[in-house]
Write a protein that binds this DNA or RNA. Structure first.
Length: 340
DNA sequence: TCTGGGGTCCTAGGACCC
DNA sequence: TCTGGGGTCCTAGGACCC
């Protein structure tokens, strides 16, 4: 039997979960994001397909979404509900004869031994729908990169297979940012090197890209262009390396004393969550986004690994003191890095 | 288009040591 | 007075993903 990688991705996950508990919303344009108030600062987490028809996409400011689709139903992000739905989906996948690697709330890779991956994919869709009422799309590939890219061609509620043979015929003419791991910045840098398409990336010289992107990323980009990927599907449980909290304020903070109080409060709140993890904090970073959307981060190593809330707060305030710019602040964040 | 919140990994440069 | 090569640690920032 052959080895295949299947990538399972739930369709319009947050919007679909909202429809499950409010069936009267089915068929309507739904926008889930922020606190559900399109007059506030915030962005779209998930838009239903009906809302996407109006040009509403993930990451779009809620205000803009409301302008594009005034009749949309705006809903707040409700983490516990999505986490519960996600847990049922992942448990369903783990019941199958496969290695399951969870990739977030609504995605997973499955390593499968089968001669009929499409039949396996249909079985996944059937079981997930039966267990949760949610639809998913499944990408099939000879590795994770192929499977991940294939899923997009299967949406919604479909199945699509990509292989070594079909990779370039399907993707060769697309821009490099169609690939998983290449965003707008890297695509632009590649264009400056004369590389526009996936096919051109596949034919690029790894040494030349190493010179431009570094010894790890350069050669990896070429492998990505070819659609080859040796990384295994791994069921090893995820180990958290950091835990953070950040807040965008509805009104900018002008008073630095208030900034200090907010950072201290974020640090104390984080300390409580970190205590539940049980792994000591070794470093604390503070992030400040000024009103003109310029962001910078300063971090401080703690004198010793600790779970003490006072020490974590002191570390955050020490990192905050490195900031000398006292312009109005739009966002504050605190992130703790945990001992391994 | 006035741009969230949660993360991970990589790179580069300076300090410091042998 | 000018100077090598390597290694590690630390910090800041960049890029990407869900």
């Amino acid at each position: 039997v052959a080895s295949w990688v299947l990538h399972v991705d739930l369709d319009q996950f947050l919007a679909a979960v909202e429809v499950l508990r409010r069936p009267e919303l089915r068929g309507l344009p739904i926008v889930v994001g922020g606190r559900g108030d399109p007059t506030e600062r915030g962005v779209v987490s998930t838009a239903s397909y009906e809302a996407r028809a109006f040009g509403v996409r993930s990451g779009l400011p809620l205000r803009t979404a409301a302008r594009r689709c005034p009749e949309a139903v705006f809903l707040p992000v409700d983490f516990p509900v999505y986490e519960a739905a996600s847990a049922v989906v992942m448990a369903t996948l783990r019941d199958l004869d496969a290695v399951v690697e969870v990739m977030g709330w609504d995605e997973a890779f499955l390593g499968v031994e089968t001669d009929d991956p499409e039949a396996f994919a249909r079985e996944i869709q059937r079981r997930v729908l039966e267990a949760t009422g949610l639809e998913c799309s499944v990408g099939i590939g000879q590795n994770k990169v192929q499977a991940k890219l294939a899923t997009g061609f299967g949406k919604p509620a479909g199945i699509f297979r990509l292989t070594d043979e079909t990779w370039l015929p399907v993707l060769g003419d697309k821009g490099t940012d169609a690939l998983w791991g290449i965003g707008s910045k890297t695509a632009k840098k590649l264009r400056a090197l004369g590389i526009e398409t996936v096919r051109e990336l596949a034919a690029a010289d790894p040494a030349e890209l190493a010179a431009a992107f570094g010894p790890t990323i350069g050669p990896w980009l070429v492998r990505l262009g070819i659609g080859r990927d040796r990384s295994p599907v791994s069921a090893t449980p995820w180990v958290r390396r950091s835990r953070g909290r950040e807040v965008t304020y509805q009104e900018n903070l002008e008073d630095w004393d208030e900034v200090r109080r907010e950072v201290a409060a974020l640090a104390r709140r984080l300390a409580g969550e970190v205590l539940d993890d049980g792994r000591p904090v070794v470093r604390v970073a503070v992030k400040v986004r000024y009103a003109p959307f310029f962001t910078s981060t300063h971090a401080r190593q703690l004198p010793e690994p600790t779970l003490d809330a006072g020490a974590i707060e002191a570390g955050a305030l020490a990192a905050l003191e490195v900031f000398t710019d006292r312009r109005p602040v739009r966002l504050l964040g605190v992130r703790t890095e945990l001992a391994l």
